[in-house]
Design a protein around this nucleic acid. Sequence first.
RNA 1: GGGCGAUUAGCUCAGUUGGUUAGAGCGCCGUCUUGACAUGGCGGAGGUCACUGGUUCAAAUCCAGUAUCGCCCACCA
Length: 937
Amino acid sequence: MEKAYNPVVMERRWYDFWERRGYFNPRGQGAPYTILLPPPNVTGTLHMGHAFQHTLMDALIRYHRMRGADVLWQAGSDHAGIATEMVVSRQLQAENQSRDRLGREAFIARVWEWKRQSGDTIERQMRRLGASADWTRSVFTMDEMPSRAVLECFVRLYDEGLIYRGQRLVNWDPVLQTAISDLEVVNQEEDGTLWTILYPFADPGLRGPDGRPGLEVATTRPETLLGDVCVAVHPDDERYLAFIGKTLILPLAGREIPIIADDYVDREFGTGCVKITPAHDFNDYEIGKRHGFAPLNVFTPQAAVNDEAPERYRGLDRYEARRRIVEDLKAQGLLLASQPHKLQIPRGDRSGEVIEPYLTDQWFVSMQRLARRGLDLVERGEVRFVPENWINTYRHWLEHIEDWCISRQLWWGHRIPAWYDRQGKVYVGRHEAEVRLKYDLDETIALTRDEDVLETWFSSALWPFSTLGWPDETAMAARGYEHRLPSSVLVTGFDILFFWVARMIMMTDHFTGRVPFHEVYITGLVRDKDGQKMSKSKGNILDPIDLIDGIDLAALIAKRTTGLMQPEMAERIAEATRREFTDGIPAFGADALRFTFAALATGGRDIKFDLQRCEGYRHFCNKLWNAARFVMQKIESGPAAGNSGRGVLEAGVAERWIASRLGATIAAVDEAYAAYRFDLAAQAIYDFTWNEFCDWYLELAKPQLAAEAEPDRAAATRRCLITTLDALLRLIHPFMPFISEEIWQRLKPHLEAAPDSLMVAPWPAAGGRDPEAEAEIAWLQAVILAVRGARTELNLAPGKPLPVVVLGGSDIDRRRWHQHETWLCRLARIAEATWQAGGEPPPDSALALAGDLRIAIPLAGLIDREAEIARLGGLLEKAEADAARSAAKLANARFVTHAPPAVVEQESQRLAQHRATGDRLRAQLKTLGVLSPSDPP
RNA sequence: GGGCGAUUAGCUCAGUUGGUUAGAGCGCCGUCUUGACAUGGCGGAGGUCACUGGUUCAAAUCCAGUAUCGCCCACCA
């Protein structure tokens, strides 16, 4: 084996090997275990969030595959309507072309072309990460199979009355010119102005509460004034009681509008008078409805003023109209005040544009009934969230859900299966022929199909069963519908809990009567090392591929600064990047990256991604690599004991110990997987590998391998090296598939009845513990650590073997010492040990304490007396403080009577131990000439 | 305005039902080119567990409140 771990050459080797052998496909045996890949959008490339989630999914998939399950990781991708249209539109713009000039058909052809060339990017990246998804079953949301499910569901929901079409106020993006759902609107607090406008009374004789000839109305959107239908006050507001039912003259428009009472109005805010514009505000829409006012729409779809408004304002953009209206009001003396005001601005999550409430015809899914079921299923535990507190968020949303606007005025997506006759009557069916048949329409009636498409999340909501061939029975049988639904677990981010998870639960239940998955593991967000959200505009994105392969500084800066929405940020981003990555990013390899993600995945909270962590796990790979190299050298240098009972019996205490520790580690890892605690699993593996296998077992093995006089022992040791490394590699494989396979393939010739690949090798069983061996080695470690500690603290040459005198101790200590003398001498660098039954240690010696043992290191002339006195003094101080604390506890009668006997017993043993330690230290100090260092406590 | 979460070593985080002297990695200090590994070995320093009060024999852990930060939801013009 090469001396250093090198991921770059190695990781290329294995992926094709696995895939060619069909290991990614279900094997058709065992209990089903299924994960649906949240289909990534075809717009982009893999980002850190994907890599994180994919790592966890792949770990689960590989783990369960090794445990013998019939595993399917269902791959796929999403057409991502708006996002993809935007990407392609931007490309067209760069070519001086446009969507509208191209026309619907040509545009869609163009998007398909983009999809084909970019759709593979994510898959390629996932392969680099080692994702063992079944690519042969990969599904795209606009493929024929899922599209059939979309049609079917739409038609059924319509026929059941759960889908309806209607004119409603919706969130409208005036730039993209499409409706979007509530969830696609993000409210941001921004600076604005609150204007106070005087609406004059129609009756010139009237005076308002402050003596003015009208009512003062506060608004943040004066341009919508043109669409006002009334002014509302609170029914109990004494200031305005007298005016309810009177009328006002709408400024600039000159229309007469009434004053009404509605308890929606907050008397404390502004002037207590609210202008009501039903066509341009969601609340006003409701008030208008309550009081029988028809909405008056004064905007075009582009959010310019339309012909309903006075001529002076027609055609003006909404902001231009605002400016002009404020100006005109001021000129007429009707603008009473304007003050800075913070307000929530609704923006489209994709376009970033300010969203208009806008009156249009759209398709909706009626949510009440579906939501009740969706909530019920989770409340009853049929779908379980991990961490479970997400149920609160889920519940709150479903309890306050509004009907879902599913139509989009776009071209890229599933076209709505609705047709209209000349009178605008709507007919819904799977295709035109079915519609004619269903509604008895002959050929003389011209039908035109609805121009709109369904929003992306509609098809996503059906994903758990549309990928299984539903509703086509043949396809369902072929795809294993019966045992793949529900899937085992969904791994996804909280950001799409409503967009996707909730809707899948509702739709899957509605159409199949099943839940889509048993568990939802909700991951946190991957943030940068300072906790900032990673985004292109902040310039702090990391491409997972760059962590795997490495990237130089120039290329990284180029990547971060090209294609920015705000090019002026480029210099600042470049500067920050230079500061953080002076030498670019080194190649960490996919395994180290994956292990980092696993180690950071603590119970669903956001993770700050720190390169140093990744570097640490690359070192871990190197450690593993070198441990394997050592094992390979040793097992190739002589025979190994067989797997027979005899070999096991020959195993020494070190072998029994490492087997016991391995068993405990496997149990811990199993437990961690069951609880989705990837961090704990990674920790257990890391700890075992480094701190037990490498630091102790390999060191204990060395003298056994070198003992030529004991060939059986060496053979048993070789056997143990083989079995432990084998099990360890299996344990590591779900997190680090490449390095584990690479090493395992080299180990394979030494294994009996091994499969072709580690990937399909069985998961190791968590064997029983061996308390006797654990106690024995714990004793050994305590002695070695005590001697080493004393040596270094006294600045004794670390390499030089020293003679020691051992005092005290029990028969067991004595037996253990003699039995393990080889190890003690080697690992603690002891030249020779002399046992002394009792009495004083040699003068001028240092003392190491391990349990009841006193180990004196006589070093006349070499020892720094003052240093040793200081060291022992420190230890004594601590022993006395500990003893005092225990004594105080035991002196407390309430403790002795209330605490469980075991705890009291433990405490008194502790006290005895501390006192004994103190006595020994005092005795030792006395031999160094320190008289009565302190009185016993 | 509601809801959720966080606050533990210089940094990033563990700490399961209350019970040794609160742990890990990274970083830091000292030391060692010993035959798997300097991407390493050995040893070490470093914490009033945000704050206040309460429950308890015993609190990082349970309860109440406070502070700071973050996220989600929400119709104050």
